[in-house]
Design a protein around this nucleic acid. Sequence first.
RNA 1: GCCGUUUUAGCUCAGGGGUAGAGCACCUCAUUCGUAAUGAGGGGGUCGUAGGUUCAAAUCCUAUAAACGGCACCA
Length: 658
Amino acid sequence: MEQTAVKEIAITLPDGAVRRYAPGVTGMEIAQSISPGLAKAVVGIHINGEPSDLSLPIEGDAAIVLVKRESDEGLEMIRHDCAHVLAEAVQTLFPGTQVTIGPTIENGFYYDFARNEPFSTEDFAAIEAEMRKIVERGAAFEREVWDRTEAIKFFRDKGEAYKAELIENLPGTESIKIYRQGAWLDLCRGPHMPTTKHVGNAFKLMKVAGAYWRGDSNKAMLTRIYGTAWRNDKELQAYLTQLEEAEKRDHRKLGKEMALFHLQEEAQGSVFWHPNGFVIYNQLEAYIRRRLSATDYREVKTPQLLDNKLWEASGHWGKYRENMFVVPDVVPNTEEGGKVFKEEPTRFMALKPMNCPAHVQIFKQGLKSYRDLPIRMAEFGCCHRNEAHGALHGLMRVRQMTQDDAHIFCTEDQITSESVAFCDLVKAVYKDLGFEDVRVVLALRPENRAGSDETWDKAEDGLRQALTQAGLAFTEEEGEGAFYGPKVEYHLRDAIGRSWQCGTLQLDFVLPERLDASYIGEDGARHRPVMLHRAVLGTLERFIGILIENYAGKLPLWLAPVQVVVATITGSADEYAEQIYNALKAAGIRAALDVRNEKINYTVREHSLAKVPNLFVVGAREAEEQTVAIRRLGSQAQDVEPLDEALAALIAQAQPPF
RNA sequence: GCCGUUUUAGCUCAGGGGUAGAGCACCUCAUUCGUAAUGAGGGGGUCGUAGGUUCAAAUCCUAUAAACGGCACCA
């Protein structure tokens, strides 16, 4: 065997095959050596588990995974690179614009720019055209490592203050990587695809929005451009179609079409429930009431207006005053045209923003023994919060909301069992209501917090254990808990994928202390109870909004505002139809009678569009035979059944799940 | 609250200095019909609000409100 000076390195592929190459071989060269087709398809590489560039020389033995453009990771790279292309296009067309950051997000990417004159969607056509030029040009992404001080100076001199700040804040251990694409360059961690051409054509700019630098409302407002990018045009079109479809499910749109509710200027953020919508509201409330009753909650009702002193004691006045509706406890001036109040009000009441302080007042009536615990106190509490104008959003974010709230007063030893019971309850309820895809977050101790580390350990473990026992997959988020205790959040998604917090479970060691709640323990001494704040739906408003979008308005029968319409084909069947209608009403079914002189096509269309789940159509034949022709929403089929059977079946189907 | 966009009939939208339009809905009449729009006729808007420019403003300018999309916030 001839000894050569050239050493070889061993490259292990995912299937375990080992290939030998000269040191300094690149990922792209490896791909080429395997097959030209692969070299074409590949856009990235993992070297010993680390995502990297195909152009990076590999000097020693390594295990590699080649990333194809068609893979999910490839798609991520397309989006990331597309953000760079966007930034180059913007700086080409709008000199003087500073670049900041441009990450990938679900379905796309965005890039934040600093410019005195903000962009408008009217600029999109020009920017997209420039982007296509850049992609067409196909400049290679070239990676360079720069000296930190030089990099800072470079960007400062260039007038890129934000980039310079980013570099200054990078940890000292991290090298400063620069990626060039032709004449343009950007600070970036990478990795990137081989060239801008790999981005392809399946991208589209979607919207502009303001966004604060570093997400801090005290810092400058930047202009953010959102884009979407896909592997091919078919995927892009599918995504755009899906967005259009999602818009049709928007609860605000359906709420109008189905006459469920409305909102108006004079009561912004507060819902006018119409008869149809209030059926859903009431059904949902009744369902939760049955669930609560079965799990030993007792329902209460507490005042809407409470003296400011109580809010001061609870701590809400200090922390949340700007979001509270405060009512001066003074008789207004009765003179025309004068000031609202003759004298400066000195006493204030506030509309309750939450129910807990009121519940503590009930707890505090009379002496409580450890034998009384846990006390589970529920209220469909109507709360008011003066939410920022920009935060309001249909039913999802309102100023007047009704929570399916409850507080559990218990001992520390009862935390885990109560939490487990609650998690089970949430799981059962969400399943009944059609939600399988729930995002569960365990929010852990924040920097500023009350209570000892020991207490927090216990509380966090209690919640963790509860979630595990309930069989819920969850993620933990450091520092996201409330100052008074950790919390579990249940998030549901709306039609276009926005996530909203619905259910919650929060441990609280502070409020019982502040409001001086106590019980007598086994030892005869006073002890502080722990409070568990919990809501299953969160607020009825938001939950109904999510429900509407989840079902696209086609609510399950037990929640449908109108469960069945009895419609006639000719006037000769009117009497029979009325008889059916009366029977349905008597059985507690929400029925409507339609004996208008209209063609049956018209009638079917109208009620189908109104998303009525069942149509009982009757004509002379049905009247004669004592049958009904059933047409169910979403089906063209006509199911002729004897009246008795149809009635019994509908009554059975209309039963709530609990 | 911040950035951008929007606001015309009950709803969805067109019209961009010369005095307001469509479709659907509504009302009236005719039609009594077998499973997603029967026909004809009619009524309806001081163009978000308040100022300004102009011979003339829905249209141009300024302010303001709300809604929408994000950001920040969400006890």
